[in-house]
Design a protein around this nucleic acid. Structure first.
Length: 484
RNA sequence: GGCCCGAUGGUCAAGAGGUCAAGACACCGCCCUUUCACGGCGGUAUCCCGGGUUCAAGUCCCGGUCGGGUCACCA
């Protein structure tokens, strides 16, 4: 990289949700800035008036704040090179576009949409690449200016050289070069006076001293055109880092339009913010060693753009689940309780020992969204078949279960205060007295009070979660089922 | 279709000419265990194909195949 102050930016357009690929690009830009003691900027690219989505900017702010990708300069906090919203920079682009015209690197174009569409159709029909035919490129500047002055609608187009090659250098992809004949005289300034992305990003990245420029590979093929612009202005080109897309599968990009999860969706499903960030960091980047779990701070220490992969990677929710589970298990009991409580409260309306329940849950959840299914037996005992009492491994069946439960009832009744310690002591005392295996008593107990094959805890813990009365009531139900 | 980019197990990936190609997820088996899970141990599975260069190629070159991107007054 160049020996200049590192300043990166995240430059989303406010068109809705924050998708995972976007968030990853923001993360890489953030990490690059922090790792080099540089600046991280937020710039809103709202030059397409028609695509604005209400509330989209708030989603961007919220997501970045929640994930801890805090910016040093941006629309809300300002900074030395503002404004940071492109629509507020309109006059700047006009000035620079006109400068390009004076330099001969751009020209006024008066072609109507109809003409362009027709041209486009013709070219497509002929199997050619679609590009502007240069119809207005040769209009004498004075004449063009007069038409502009007369109020005629116009756009400003980049004048691509007739011959030669254009190229650029990417830190990971290396030097990429194309023949200028493949390049289009792209629109720089639209009829409404707004710049296109192609122009705005060049002007802004230069004016905001961005280096390196970090963005998606969708810009790989237009980068040569951007460098032509830098050259026309006489500006130094920045370092580039292009990041490959995040895929849904081998052939489709991850996108909300296909119903794929956005950052917000993942949070709603019960994934932890830090885990999401950790996982997406690993999608297309690796630290080069075997570490997989790291905090934002740790990532800052080990991140380098050189280790970003060049090929697309597929978003694997299974791996995210695993990492999320790791995060959940590493949470302090208090922190987990805080996160889990809303989920438990929502899933359990009646009363029970939620503190203990949550303790159990921390070891058995990969995502918070696992909670409802784990605790669905608490409010109401599910319907179950007595065959559930049969366990080959525990050597139990409905008959032994009936016997065990009958033994258990008086013992549990004798436990004054239902704590894990007390219930455990009482039951194990019974087990010893009867000379049976643990499972002989405990399997029937667990089945009787939960009606489920898999539960978040063992019979003792769950009896305490449910409480003495409810436990005895459910054992009574089981005994009745077993024909006692 | 033209141009650009990419390609290591099912997935994420390490590897940057020279040990039997790391590790993780998932999957399978075993152990632990009052279920499941956690944890521990072990296992199956990969260099897209074809040519070259080299004593030696997953690593370099060429071609092909496949995949992605781009070809808007969207970003």
């Amino acid at each position: 990289m160049k020996d200049v102050r590192v300043r990166t930016r995240f430059a989303p357009s406010p068109t809705g949700y924050m998708h995972v690929g976007n968030l990853r690009t923001a993360l890489y830009a953030y990490l690059t800035a922090r790792a080099n003691n540089g600046d991280f900027l937020l710039r809103i690219e709202d030059t397409d008036q028609n695509r604005q989505v209400e509330g989209a900017i708030d989603i961007i702010y919220n997501t970045l704040r929640e994930t801890g990708l805090l910016w040093d300069e941006g629309p809300d906090c300002g900074g030395p090179v503002g404004p940071y919203v492109q629509s507020e920079r309109k006059p700047i682009y006009k000035k620079y576009a006109e400068e390009l015209i004076e330099k001969g690197a751009a020209y006024y174009c008066f072609c109507t949409k109809e003409r362009l569409e027709e041209l486009n159709n013709l070219q497509k029909a002929a199997g050619q690449i679609t590009k502007y035919d240069g119809h207005c490129a040769s209009i004498p500047l004075e004449e063009a200016k007069a038409r502009v002055a007369a109020g005629e609608a116009y756009v400003i187009r980049q004048r691509i050289p007739k011959t030669g090659v254009a190229g650029f250098d990417d830190i990971n992809f290396g030097h990429i070069e194309v023949d200028v004949s493949t390049l289009d005289d792209q629109v720089l300034l639209k009829a409404d006076g707004m710049p296109t992305y192609n122009f705005a990003n060049v002007v802004d990245d230069h004016l905001m001293n961005i280096n390196p420029v970090i963005r998606g590979t969708e810009y790989l093929s237009s980068a040569p055109k951007y460098n032509l612009l830098y050259a026309a202005f006489g500006w130094e080109v920045p370092d580039y880092v292009h990041c490959p897309p995040v895929m849904k599968d081998a052939t489709h990009k991850l996108s909300k339009r296909n119903g794929d999860a956005s950052y917000e969706d993942l949070v709603e499903m019960g994934y932890l913010t830090d885990a999401i960030l950790n996982y997406i960091a690993l999608l297309g980047w690796s630290p080069g060693n075997e570490q997989e779990i790291f905090s934002l701070e740790e990532m800052v220490k080990i991140f380098t753009v050189e280790r970003i992969n060049k090929s697309p990677s597929i978003f694997d929710i299974e791996k995210l689940r695993f990492i999320n589970g790791e995060y959940i298990r590493r949470l302090s009991a208090e922190a987990f309780a805080e996160k889990a409580m809303p989920w438990v409260d929502k899933a359990v309306k009646g009363s029970c020992n939620k503190k203990l329940l949550i303790e159990l849950l921390q070891q058995r959840c990969e995502i918070l969204g696992d909670i409802p299914e784990q605790v669905d037996f608490i409010d109401a005992l599910p319907e179950y078949d007595t065959e559930l009492f049969t366990s080959k491994k525990m050597k139990t069946d409905p008959e032994t279960a009936k016997a065990a439960l009958n033994l258990l009832v008086p013992v549990l009744q004798g436990v004054e205060i239902f704590t894990v310690e007390n219930v455990h002591a009482a039951i194990f005392n019974l087990i010893e007295k009867e000379g049976v295996k643990n499972g002989y008593m405990l399997w029937p107990l667990r089945v009787a009070i939960t009606g489920k094959q898999f539960t978040p805890g063992g019979g003792i813990e769950l009896a305490v979660v449910l409480g003495k009365d409810e436990t005895l009531k459910r054992i009574g139900v089981a005994l009745k089922k077993l024909g006692a």
